[in-house]
Amino acid sequence: MLAAIFLFVGCQLTGEVLRELLSLPIPGPVIGMFFLGALLVCWQKTGTNRNIPVEVERTAETFIRYMGLLFVPAGVGVISQGGLLRAEWLPILVGLVGSTILSVAITGFVMHWTSRTRHTKVALINSERTL
């Protein structure tokens, strides 16, 4: 657990350093994500049948499961936008809902349509519904 957290924080630090050094327009954690991804792919491909350590996998699962909580402090920032929200609530509301729905639909549709012939069995969602 601790070693895995160290790995994640270490990759985040690497991401921040790379961002500063190369003055990239992308946040450190996103660079760090690609960095750790590359590291883990190398790890998997260099040995025969080498898997990602269970500890790393479990820690990642825990972080991802509670990721929603981590957005709450930034989300509460909406209260500091009261003035703008009251003044322009209609364009903001319709713009936000409309463009989010359109974007989900277009991305999902194009992805599905262009990849439907490949590996469809592995990717199939069982009939479970969420609503």
Binding site: P29, G32, L40, E61, I64
Partner: peptide, 22 residues
């Protein structure tokens, strides 16, 4: 809590690496 968003973003590399072929 906000700080942990960093390591959590990094953690997404794990499912990414596991499914890299796909």
């Amino acid at each position: 809590i906000n700080f942990l968003l960093g390591p959590a973003t990094i953690a997404l590399a794990v499912p990414l690496a596991k499914n890299i072929d796909l």
